[in-house]
């Protein structure tokens, strides 16, 4: 961080081209050197392993479909994940998308601006001859890289756990078609990419709140509160006109990746919705950041 703050002072002409790559590199090093980042990533990596082992050990003889099905995305998907190496990674992603992953995206967004303000390190950025737009770009790339890392780590350990427990023959869809390894990996990659996009939207909202406050806890609390309020609103049938506006409205559609042929409509709509949230949140973050005094 210190090198970023001091380095641009020398070549003043380099303002426009203060090597974006170098700024991003510095930011990423900053993110991935934080112990809490690594702890969170480690915990996320362990979740699919725990779920996989637990489902194998429990291995209930009775059909899991006996309970009231269709109540949520992750939980009922996990019911089928026991003997299926394809459902395990996607199912755990769907489960974690409920609360854990948004929480870690919010943490990353909170650290990016509010956290640095609290430590006084954002001052260096604001005083340095780096455009505020570039600052926001660097910060949002940082959040995006973190969210992608989080989902990829989860998906990878999920796939590995599933393959170790059930073997390569167990890569089959909810429609009963057994997939080849590359085709299955493509599906997992689509799921991970889609989840990362949703998390980027959460992270963008966190960045926007982050730009307006100097307390990282405020960011965490408001994003977490928002996720919970949105889930509750999503459960109320009387408010169904509001549902398309809620970011997590399409989060339960992640299971569609596992269907064959894959119905693309709900997933595309979810991606578009995330894009709208990103546009709103980043423009608000920029507005605040560009008027912030050093």
């Amino acid at each position: 961080m210190t090198e970023v703050a001091t380095a641009p002072a020398v070549p003043v002409t380099g303002r426009a081209h203060a090597s974006l790559a170098r700024l991003v590199r510095a930011e990423l090093r900053w993110i991935f050197r934080r112990p809490r980042t690594l702890v969170v990533l480690g915990l996320l990596a362990v979740i699919p392993v725990i779920v996989g082992i637990a489902l194998t050990l429990v291995d209930s003889p009775g059909p899991p479909g006996g309970g009231p099905g269709g109540d949520g995305g992750g939980e009922s998907l996990l019911a089928t994940a026991g003997g299926n190496a394809l459902v395990l990674p996607v199912g755990t992603l769907a489960m974690a998308l409920g609360l854990l992953l948004p929480l870690s995206a919010a943490m990353s967004g909170a650290d990016a601006l509010a956290g640095e303000t609290a430590h006084g390190t954002l001052r260096g950025w604001l005083l340095a001859p780096v455009g505020r737009g570039r600052l926001l770009l660097v910060k949002s790339i940082g959040v995006a890289v973190f969210t992608v890392t989080a989902t990829v780590v989860m998906a990878l350990t999920g796939v590995l756990t599933g393959l170790v427990i059930n073997g390569t023959g167990s890569l089959f869809t909810l429609s009963g078609t057994t997939l080849s390894f590359p085709a299955a990996m493509l599906k997992v990659a689509i799921a991970a990419g889609w989840v990362a996009l949703q998390l980027w939207a959460v992270g963008a909202v966190a960045l926007a709140i982050s730009a307006w406050t100097e307390h990282p806890m405020v960011v965490l609390a408001s994003v977490l509160g928002g996720v919970i309020v949105f889930s509750v609103l999503g459960l109320l049938d009387a408010l169904d006109w509001l549902h398309p506006f809620l970011l997590n409205h399409s989060w339960t559609d992640l299971g569609d990746v596992l269907r064959d042929p894959m119905p693309g409509g709900p997933l595309a709509e979810g991606a578009l919705r995330a894009g709208c949230y990103i546009a709103i949140a980043l423009s608000l973050a920029y507005a605040r950041l560009s008027t912030k005094d050093g």
Binding site: C276, I278, A279, I280, S283, L284, A287
Partner: peptide, 11 residues
């Protein structure tokens, strides 16, 4: 801020 919010809200 207005333009970004408008685009997102319209979407």
């Amino acid at each position: 801020a207005v333009a970004g919010t408008a685009i997102g809200a319209a979407g």
